[in-house]
Design a protein around this nucleic acid. Sequence first.
DNA 1: CGGTTACTTGAGTTCCGTCAACCGAAGTGG
DNA 2: CCACTTCGGTTGACGGAACTCAAGTAACCG
Lengths: 235, 235
Amino acid sequence: MPPSGKNCLTCIVRGTDCFCSLPLNALHDLQVIGSHKRFNAGEHLLYEGFNADRVYIVCQGCIKLTASSSEGKVFIIRIAGPGDVIGLASAMQGTTYKIAAEAMEPCEVKVISRSEFLDFMDRFREVNRNAVVSISLDCEAATLSARRLALSSSAAGKLASVLIDWGRMGQTNGILSKELHFRMPLTHEELGSMAGLSRETVTRLLGKFRREGLIKLEGEQMTVREPEKLERLYH
Amino acid sequence: MPPSGKNCLTCIVRGTDCFCSLPLNALHDLQVIGSHKRFNAGEHLLYEGFNADRVYIVCQGCIKLTASSSEGKVFIIRIAGPGDVIGLASAMQGTTYKIAAEAMEPCEVKVISRSEFLDFMDRFREVNRNAVVSISLDCEAATLSARRLALSSSAAGKLASVLIDWGRMGQTNGILSKELHFRMPLTHEELGSMAGLSRETVTRLLGKFRREGLIKLEGEQMTVREPEKLERLYH
DNA sequence: CGGTTACTTGAGTTCCGTCAACCGAAGTGG
DNA sequence: CCACTTCGGTTGACGGAACTCAAGTAACCG
């Protein structure tokens, strides 16, 4: 059975920063409100500028949150996964979405209208609390992106920062290990979109990092051998 | 009498996105919790990395929210003013502050401990709602900064975007006017810190904008004559 | 008047984006 | 089965934009 199985009560997607970590009575409510929906890879859940009249809770799959310029340049702010809520900040303000959301693989989500979600928040203080934490996480992710782009003056620093942040999230070996070992399914193009760099520059830098022994690549597996050294490229 | 006069009930700082726009009973509570404090220009309210155990409500004055690199480079994420809450996102997550806050002029703030604030949120659903909106605004500001830095490839585009965003906030003529007229009290250094540019580049670009008739400068008064044209520099 | 802060301008240099060509793998369709 | 396309990655050459360094001006203030 997939993580969700369309049932919020038996769903195994939980965790400290997971929106769905709620007491049973709230989960009962969550189960019956909104609707379940699937998206294929490449499909958009929502677009920038649209009226923020609903929120999405990710049940399964990865979703790119992006901002685009009129010339077609794309910036990836964050990649949302199971347990994340999408569109919450804009919906809470009752304005328009400030970013777009695009499925990176086949995804399952729960769609809840703004008004329904507001009611849901009013009924349970835990929902309120989790919503606040969800938006806070969004806020931190955006802050981190901005800081990266503004403070690391070199392309190497920006890319290093993206790799390390990504690695710290998806680390597959123990936290205690000095090395970071993780899956890196993103294309150079996507890494570039996160770091504000061109695809070619990403290729060149990853090659350089590899040659210098800072990272190791084996297919989708990436190992950052010396996180501190990589981090110091920030300069 | 200054805007606040240390009394939340008679304070005139209100507005749609103001945290203190609350019903009377909540204001009564707000009046008695926390403590009132003053900061001189240049003093720090909080530093990056510190335990997020309190939040600040700005009563009066402007406060820079900044991120700094180890080399001393500074990035200004946002400038908070009366009615804004500082440190909320980090406090809600119970982690550390991700940014620093520095008074730009003599300021008055209300300091509330994290636990006291959480209680306050639990007592009034309106406080909850306003806290959510406050964090959402933070989130949007950070997103805007990130988008600016990532998507505008030229320095001119970044600076233009900072000027226009600043202008739209502090506009002193009617909203209907095509031109943006506003106070620009920031130094070139500060503008650079917001746009991710060096001080010299800001000087050169402002000169260029002025020579091209895109903006007009009279002391602290700035007029953006052709916002659309300036905005198109985004390229 | 000296000291500080902000702004201005010039010269030199480097970094990275762009353009272009090319490779290998995977998928598609007749 | 093979020609064709697409996608992701790689590498080289080039040029321009912006950073840095440096020197100098202007305004303000005790």
